[in-house]
C-alpha cells in the first residue's frame, strides 16, 4: 500500500511541483496518473522511488515512511519497485537477456538463479524469441518489452512506468498496456503516468489527475478528461 499524506514538493526558488497531495493506492491496484506536461507526474514517481524527498508531508510504502529511510536502506526499497521509462534505457552493448540479467547481477544473485528468472520474465513479455538480440536490432515496442522484463525480473510488489508508450505508435502502445494489465493481474501494483488518453478511456481503471501540482480528480473507473 502506498500512502501520500499532504505531500508537497517545492524546487528552489519557488517552483511548486506537487502541492498538498494526499492519496492512497492499495496493493494490487492499477492506476493511471494523468495530467498535462509539468503537472507533477514525474515528480510523483521520483518521490515514490525516493530519488527526492518531499518538501512537506509523508510518503508511506507498506506502512513505512520512506523519508525516514537511511541512505543505505534506499536500494532495498527500490528492489521492491520496478521502473519503466519512456526511453527504455537499455544498455546498447548487451543483449536483451543480458540487459534483464543485469538487474539481478547487480544484486549479487547467484547465476543459476538468474537464468530461470530471466527466461520467465522474457516469457511474460513475449520476448523469448528475441533474447539474444541487441537493443538496436529490436523495434521500439520490443525494446519497451525488454525494459518491462527487466523491471519485473526481481518480482517487485510495485511497478511504476513514466510515459511507457510515449515513443510508440497506438497499436504497439495497446500491446504494451496489455502486458501491464497482465502483470497487474498477477498481483503487482501498477502505476502508469501517461498521455495516452484513448487507452485510459477504454480501460476504465482508476485515474488520478494532477494539474499544476494539485490533485484535481481521483476516479475509480475514470477517463482521461483532457484533450492530449
Amino acid at each position: 500500500m502506498i500512502q501520500f499524506f499532504n505531500v508537497s514538493k517545492i524546487y528552489s526558488p519557488n517552483i511548486i511541483a506537487l502541492d498538498d497531495v494526499s492519496i492512497k493506492i492499495d496493493k494490487g491496484e492499477f492506476v493511471f496518473l494523468v495530467g498535462p506536461s509539468g503537472a507533477g507526474k514525474t515528480t510523483f514517481i521520483r518521490l515514490l522511488l525516493r530519488e527526492e524527498l518531499p518538501s512537506r508531508g509523508q510518503i508511506l510504502i507498506g506502512g513505512r515512511s520512506i523519508s525516514r529511510l537511511r541512505p543505505r536502506e534506499i536500494p532495498f526499497l527500490r528492489r521492491n519497485i520496478g521502473v519503466v521509462f519512456q526511453d527504455f534505457r537499455l544498455l546498447p552493448d548487451r543483449t536483451v537477456a543480458e540487459n534483464v540479467a543485469f538487474a539481478l547481477e547487480v544484486l549479487e544473485m547467484p547465476r543459476r538463479e538468474i537464468k530461470p528468472r530471466v527466461e520467465k520474465a522474457l516469457a511474460r513479455v513475449g520476448l523469448t524469441a528475441r533474447a539474444h538480440f541487441f537493443p538496436h536490432q529490436l523495434s521500439g515496442g520490443e525494446q519497451q518489452r525488454a525494459a518491462i522484463a527487466r523491471a519485473i525480473v526481481n518480482n517487485p510488489h510495485i511497478l511504476v512506468a513514466d510515459e511507457p508508450t510515449g515513443n510508440l505508435d497506438p497499436a504497439i502502445a495497446r500491446e504494451i498496456m496489455n502486458i501491464f494489465l497482465e502483470i497487474n493481474r498477477m498481483g503487482t501494483t501498477v502505476i502508469i503516468a501517461t498521455h495516452a488518453w484513448n487507452i485510459v478511456n477504454s480501460l476504465r481503471k482508476r485515474v488520478i489527475a494532477l494539474e499544476r501540482g494539485r490533485l484535481v480528480r481521483d476516479d475509480r473507473e475514470g477517463v482521461y478528461g483532457y484533450e492530449a
Binding site: R72, R79, R89, L91, F102, A103, V106, N154
Partner: peptide, 16 residues
C-alpha cells in the same frame, strides 16, 4: 552513467 542510473533504479547498493 547509463549503467549507473539503471543500477540505482534496480536497487544495487551504493558500494556495489
Amino acid at each position: 552513467r547509463r549503467e549507473i542510473s539503471i543500477m540505482k533504479y534496480v536497487g544495487a547498493t551504493d558500494w556495489f
